Amino acid sequence: MPNALPWLDAAPVLAACAAVAGFLRPRRGTAEVFLVGAGPGDPDLLTVAAVKALGRADVVLYDALVGPGILDLAPKSALRVFVGKRSGAHAMAQEAISALIAARAAAGKVVVRLKGGDPMMFGRAGEEIDHLKARGIPVTVIPGITAALGCAASAGVSLTRRGVAATVHFVTAHRCDAGATPDWSRLADPEGTLCVYMGKEQASAVRGGLLAGGLDPATPVLAIENGTRPDERRVSGPLSALPDLTAALGGGPALIIIGWAVAGAEASSPVSAALAG
């Protein structure tokens, strides 16, 4: 029977599938490291590649922001090592984490370095990659959904909007060099959306800098805690009330979205109406 679709060559598709299968097939005794993005929290948002890599892991080094249930995808026999960093509390120094990854991989273990969100977004992945490459250890990066995209989707808001917001900026309010902060006034773009990672403790500085840069005090703000998780909480209000909004949240990880693209975003806390009034 003649091929009904003579223009379709299946060979490249089959070759790609074979490559993926080979990429995730165990190779005993070889050093293998996967830097895996765990996404914003919901295990259903993991990529297929992430699930497969976790299923092969001998060792999993995981961050504080890894959502519940994700570690369960690793074999029960896998060694789980918490190396999380939260403000003012580091389970392990970055140099020690990199050294541990290299040591386990050099011993022939399949090592999964599990990072919240996307491993290449504010996750120090570059330092770990450099450390491993310097020792001849291959490393594969498996991307994940970064917090800004996951939180925006969960809240049903678009980070860009025709005629309202044409640009998006991702910025972290927490810097490793003491005393250094972003120049918030330069980020005061009324036609853009600003996504602030790790910004709860810097809420006053964020507000002050953006207002000094000319941003309207009425600019909408949406703060999302534990985005995409069952205990997700959202508060919204104007930029002028930003410190009060973040203070109304609990102790979980939070993302702050600032800009007119989130105007009218539905909050999940009664504090929003009071602060907006």
Rank of each mutant, 00 (worst) to 15 (best):
V83W: 00
K85G: 08
K85L: 03
R86Y: 05
S87F: 12
S87T: 13
G88R: 03
A89G: 00
H90D: 12
H90W: 09
A93V: 14
Q94E: 12
Q94I: 01
A96D: 15
A96F: 03
A96W: 00
I97G: 08
I97Q: 06
S98P: 00
L100N: 00
L100A: 13
L100W: 06
L100H: 04
A102F: 00
A102T: 05
A103F: 02
A103E: 15
A103P: 04
R104K: 14
A105S: 12
A105Q: 08
A106I: 06
A107M: 03
G108S: 08
G108I: 07
G108E: 10
G108K: 10
K109W: 01
V110M: 02
V110E: 04
R113W: 01
K115I: 09
K115F: 07
G116T: 09
G116I: 06
G116M: 05
P119V: 09
P119I: 03
G123V: 00
G123P: 06
E128L: 05
E128Q: 08
E128C: 08
I129N: 02
D130A: 15
H131N: 08
H131L: 10
H131I: 06
L132A: 00
L132C: 07
A134E: 13
A134C: 13
R135T: 06
R135A: 10
G136Y: 03
I137L: 12
I137Q: 03
I137R: 05
P138N: 05
T140P: 06
I142H: 04
I142V: 15
P143G: 10
G144F: 03
G144M: 09
I145C: 07
I145K: 02
T146Q: 08
A147H: 01
A147Q: 11
A148D: 02
A148Y: 01
A148I: 05
L149C: 14
C151P: 09
A152H: 04
S154L: 10
S154G: 13
S154P: 04
G156V: 04
G156W: 10
G156S: 09
V157F: 02
V157Y: 04
T160I: 06
T160P: 07
T160S: 08
T160Y: 03
R161K: 15
R161F: 02
R162V: 09
A165C: 12
A165P: 05
T167L: 01
T167E: 13
V168T: 12
H169T: 15
A173S: 11
A173F: 01
H174V: 14
H174Y: 10
R175I: 06
C176K: 15
A178G: 11
A178H: 12
G179F: 06
A180N: 10
T181R: 15
R186P: 05
R186A: 15
R186I: 10
R186Q: 15
L187Y: 03
L187K: 02
A188S: 09
A188W: 05
A188D: 08
D189R: 13
D189A: 11
D189T: 12
D189V: 12
P190A: 03
P190W: 01
G192E: 04
L194I: 08
L194E: 01
L194F: 04
L194A: 05
C195S: 08
V196R: 08
V196D: 10
Y197Q: 10
Y197R: 10
M198L: 14
G199R: 03
G199M: 12
G199S: 07
A205N: 13
V206L: 15
V206A: 02
V206K: 04
G208C: 07
G208E: 15
G208M: 06
G208R: 14
L210G: 02
L210I: 11
L211F: 09
L211H: 04
A212K: 14
